[in-house]
């Protein structure tokens, strides 16, 4: 199912939660909506689901206008942030709900429903837990029940709002893999919301980055990380040192620090350099090393420029010994944006 979102606006009172949002999602894609808190991720997801309706613009499913169609008519599977499992129903009843509500000849027989529930429980590795109540499950298990309940109706789109938000780091990691596996097994077009960039970059085919109700950039994880199109994306995705300064003649200057800035118009600008893009270089500028400590296979170096601007450098373990006292470094890659 392809999904097109065309200049969608949504206001809550006078507050614009979504502002001219355009987004194309390909069939079978796994897309992440990434952004800080309050950026409009949930609002956009709910608009796609038909749980919220835009003030302007269009939502198209497979070329068909569904802007004002109900959630049920769109056949979406929605996984809520707090799961929203039916507390008084068993796991099996929860999963079967979407099939149980059907009427007439659309309604599968009891045996078919049971079979489908068993299949889904297997898919999310919860076999044998069908008779439990949601309160008798761990957070991770509830999450899986919510996922299989959403999948039970064979949705055309699977939408997940911060699916791993309430879980601890280990469970998050394993469930991430699980979502990827389920997505690959079912091939259903999937959109998930997260404010965790690591999660978005690891899991998604493409990432859409939202800020203040607007889409800043849509691209593959590599693209948004390596070629950020806006200052916001650069600062939000991945680690970055930021510097406020001036551009003149293709050169960025902030105090003693000089960085190449080809193609950026003259005037005030912000420069970003990823920690791993700083390298030792005799022709570069001087910094004072304050601290260097081991970070897995890398060395994390805290340093400061001569005029006191702090910066973070990430080097290999082999280079750790070289970062002592005053060293000269250069940036092999910079991102400079006029402000």
């Amino acid at each position: 199912m392809t999904i097109s979102i065309r200049s969608v606006d949504k206001k809550f009172g006078r507050y614009p939660a979504l502002n001219k949002v355009d987004l194309e999602i390909a069939d079978g894609e796994l897309l992440a909506l990434l952004g800080p808190s309050g950026s409009g991720k949930t609002t956009l997801l709910r608009t796609i689901a038909g749980l919220e309706f835009p003030d302007a613009g269009q939502v198209l499913f497979h070329g068909q206008d569904v802007t004002f169609a109900s959630a049920a008519a769109r056949r979406v599977g929605f996984v809520f942030q707090q799961y929203a499992l039916f507390k008084h129903m068993t796991v099996a009843k929860n999963i079967a709900f979407g099939l149980d509500v059907r009427k007439g000849k659309d309604k599968p027989s009891k045996i078919e429903i049971e079979k489908r529930v068993d299949e889904l429980l297997k898919l999310v590795e919860l076999d044998g837990l069908g008779k439990r109540y949601p309160s008798q499950l761990s957070g991770g298990q509830r999450q899986r029940v919510a996922l299989s309940r959403a999948l039970a109706v064979q949705p055309s789109v699977l939408l997940l709002d911060e699916p791993f938000g309430a879980l601890d780091a280990t469970v998050r990691k394993s469930l991430r893999k699980e979502l990827r596996r389920v997505h690959d097994a079912t091939g259903v077009t999937t959109i998930f919301v997260t404010h965790d960039q690591e999660e978005a970059l690891e899991l998604a085919d493409r990432v859409a980055i939202l800020n203040k109700g607007q889409i800043e950039q849509v691209g593959t994880p590599d693209q948004v990380h390596d070629q950020p199109q806006t200052a916001f994306v650069c600062g939000f995705v991945g680690e970055a040192n930021s510097f406020e300064g001036q551009v003149a003649g293709g050169q960025f200057t902030a105090g003693a620090l000089r960085l190449p800035a080809a193609g950026v118009r003259d005037g005030a600008a912000t420069a970003y350099v990823r920690p791993h893009d700083f390298v030792l270089d005799e022709t570069g500028f001087e910094v004072r090393v304050e601290r260097a400590h081991v970070q897995g296979p890398l060395t994390a170096v805290s340093a400061a420029t001569l005029d006191g601007h702090p910066l973070e450098i990430s080097a290999s373990r082999a280079e750790a010994a070289l970062f002592q006292g005053a060293v000269k470094i250069a940036a092999r890659k910079t991102h400079v944006y006029a402000v």
Partner: peptide, 21 residues
């Protein structure tokens, strides 16, 4: 309202949602 929204998004009517959820 999220349980109700979940029910509605799975095709339940308002009345069904009220009685069952």
């Amino acid at each position: 309202t999220s349980e109700e929204e979940a029910a509605i998004s799975m095709g339940a009517s308002g009345l069904y949602t009220f009685w069952r959820v």
